[in-house]
Computed example of a mutant assay.
Amino acid sequence: MADLSRFPITARWPATNPDAIQLYAFPTPNGVKISIALEELALPYEAHKVTLKPEDVKSPEFLTLNPNGKIPAIIDPDGPDGQPACVFESGAILIYLAEKTGKLIGNSASERLDILQWLMFQMGGIGPMFGQLGYFYRGDGKAIDDKRPKDRYIAETRRLLSVVEQRLDGREWLCGDYSIADIATGPWLRILDMYGAREAVGWWDFPNCIAYLDRFLARPAVQVGLVTPPRD
């Protein structure tokens, strides 16, 4: 049995099965990326709910795992060289898990490169910009009288959706076979509905994105991952 006692986070969120990957997350788009990936890869894992409240993500225990105080993060008891290892940042975790298993990251160097490009597109574009849209459209930012921030992120969300729309023309998934690029992107397309922002961004103008999200949400691993760990 793996010994995870050197990780202070396990004192607050104890591991029931220390031989399984320990996932510390909340069901946000970034959080569910990892539970979906773990389900798709059939890797044993244990999910711990770490809320977005400062008492959780800014706690001394969690900061030992991610100094940036953001979910998700994992501890893999069977990390590099067979030693336990922690990984934070959702994109880094996806790459780590894909490389660990040799799955969802392509079958050649060129396929891997393509997947990593689209993963970074989500990490650097879709995630931050859609997140800002959520803040100004549904979050605290909606109380700001100046409409320019909201209008800016509505326009940028539409632009990013148009990039995905064009990429999906004649494609089922972003990079040929289903990959970590899709696992990263799908939850962020879904969040537009949860923001109540589909009408604002003209979601129905993007039929390829609509069909893509339907395919993504139909996957059994996605359905489980989206509610792991449970919100309540």
Score class of each variant (00 low, 15 high):
N17E: 14
D193Y: 06
V50Q: 02
I183S: 00
R159M: 01
G91E: 05
D145Q: 15
F88Y: 15
A20D: 15
D19Y: 13
T64N: 03
K53E: 15
I21C: 10
M1Y: 13
A221R: 09
R219N: 06
N68M: 13
R190I: 00
E172G: 12
E61H: 07
R167H: 09
G202T: 04
I75A: 08
K100P: 05
A98T: 02
S59A: 10
P220N: 02
Y96L: 09
G91D: 03
K33P: 06
F130A: 10
P77C: 10
P14F: 11
V163T: 13
S90T: 11
D182L: 00
D78N: 15
T10H: 10
D56G: 00
A98M: 10
N66S: 09
N107P: 04
Y45S: 05
H48Q: 04
Q117M: 15
K103Q: 15
Q132I: 06
P220K: 07
G127V: 13
D3E: 11
N17V: 13
N17S: 14
W13A: 06
M194R: 14
L226H: 09
L168I: 08
E89H: 08
A197N: 00
G125I: 04
S110Y: 14
G196M: 03
V163I: 11
F136H: 12
M120Q: 13
G170N: 05
P229S: 01
G134I: 11
R138G: 06
K58I: 03
A42V: 11
N17R: 15
V57N: 01
P77R: 05
M194Q: 13
S90C: 12
M120G: 05
G127L: 08
P8L: 03
G176D: 08
P54H: 07
T10P: 00
P80M: 06
P29A: 03
R6K: 15
L23G: 01
D146Y: 15
T185K: 00
E156W: 14
